[in-house]
Design a protein around this nucleic acid. Structure first.
Lengths: 226, 226
DNA sequence: GTTAGCATGTAAGGAGTTACATGATTTT
DNA sequence: AAAATCATGTAACTCCTTACATGCTAAC
């Protein structure tokens, strides 16, 4: 039961914790939030939603409910109302029987345990991006521990790449070496990024700890899960 | 039949074209050559080798043959011979019945068609690294076309990321924006890299075209597949 | 009136991993 | 004698995508 993917689960629960959404919209946001060009396919998303419903972590409600805001608001570039000849005065129900998903109490609790866990699963390659995207819902201590874990992981990778490059220095041709060099650069680039983030988080913690209470309203919204 | 993964197939054929190898060694090189820390599992490699044998692209020969050089040469950090108490005078047959794989004529031909193809499959994310790693066996014209294709692909991705960032600028929180920013940086970084490579290739072509025959021996080994 | 976008889903299959199974050889 | 490394392979399973199936609404 704990073998399930966890990353998709976390992403969905995290997004739904910000606002109830239907599947189609959820998929788009999943793409946007991660800077992923390649969005998740429906063939993955809908079965995942069904599983979450079965686990009692989310509820599925037929569209009448009308989701909090989006999909009808700011989509059509500036125009407030279509106002064309067809009967557009139908209320926001819209299109087809949308199914709006919302977190249950269990779901919120489960999300909280997921977001509080700062173990290897949080900073490995496949998981880190999603966990980072949900830092807004993660408490400051956990954020810092995940960043530090990620930093260590990257340092390990860096050493592995360097060692691999050294081992095959003579054997490898020009292009292979160039590829290794660039691979190394990428890791170094991410290390720099993480270092900046860690410094930023430390500064945040310091100012929140009462030394210089410059911007106290900057701390995350859900320290104890709202 | 053309639905098969192609990337693993290309990588294996490309490595075997440099030297006959057995599976265990092949796997290690696959990792090194790509700067990949995460090596391919045997559960993928051995079935792939079997498929290639069945297709007649490679031959499997029991270890007696003794592979061209490696695995016994430069592995144990400088020591030329073990020279310890156990009977080490056994010939290079070694360990267990290794199976050495070698390209057939068909395999060489097939590899050539794979390496000459400069279409989208060459510059997409999943394939580019392997294709680039085999540039030493690719002719100059194809190299340049692949790099240019990759460049265009990256430009598309860059636009997609920027658009995504713009679309969710207000909606997204601080961390999500930071993630998008870094994602964009990564693509920009790769664009710069590709641009450098393209310039380098162009310079190479120019000097090879007879204007300034500075280093004529620099051109690849297999323009017409040796 | 036809294309594009919204919306939900299923079935089949592809590409890979992990865990298992086996055994020789080398090093400690 | 134990542990690490070499070496090959299979079976089950995971996670994901593609292709299909359906139908409504908005825009051109």
């Amino acid at each position: 039961m704990r073998s399930r993917s966890e990353v998709l689960e976390t992403a969905v629960l995290g997004l739904l914790n910000e606002a109830p959404l239907h599947g189609y919209e959820l998929r788009k946001r999943l793409g946007l939030a991660l800077g992923t060009f390649r969005a998740l396919s429906y063939g993955s998303l809908y079965p995942a939603l069904r599983r979450l419903v079965q686990q009692g972590l989310i509820t599925a409600v037929e569209g009448d409910q009308r989701p909090s805001s989006d999909t009808n608001t700011a989509r059509n570039g500036g125009r407030t109302r279509p106002a064309r000849g067809t009967m557009t005065n139908k209320p926001a129900l819209g299109r087809r029987g949308r199914i709006v998903y919302e977190l249950t109490a269990d779901g919120k609790e489960h999300l909280h345990t997921l977001l509080t866990n700062a173990g290897p699963t949080a900073w490995e390659d496949e998981n880190f991006d999603v966990r980072f995207a949900l830092f807004g819902q993660t408490d400051a201590e956990t954020r810092l521990r995940i960043l530090e874990g990620r930093r260590t992981r990257l340092a390990e990778q860096l050493e592995a790449v360097r060692e691999a490059a050294a081992r095959s220095r003579n054997r490898a041709d020009e292009y292979t070496r160039e590829l290794q060099r660039f691979g190394q650069e990428k890791v170094e680039h991410e290390v720099d990024w993480i270092d900046r983030l860690i410094r930023a988080e430390r500064g945040r913690v310091d100012s929140a700890s009462g030394v210089h209470p410059k911007s106290p309203g900057n701390t995350p919204q859900s320290k104890e899960r709202g």
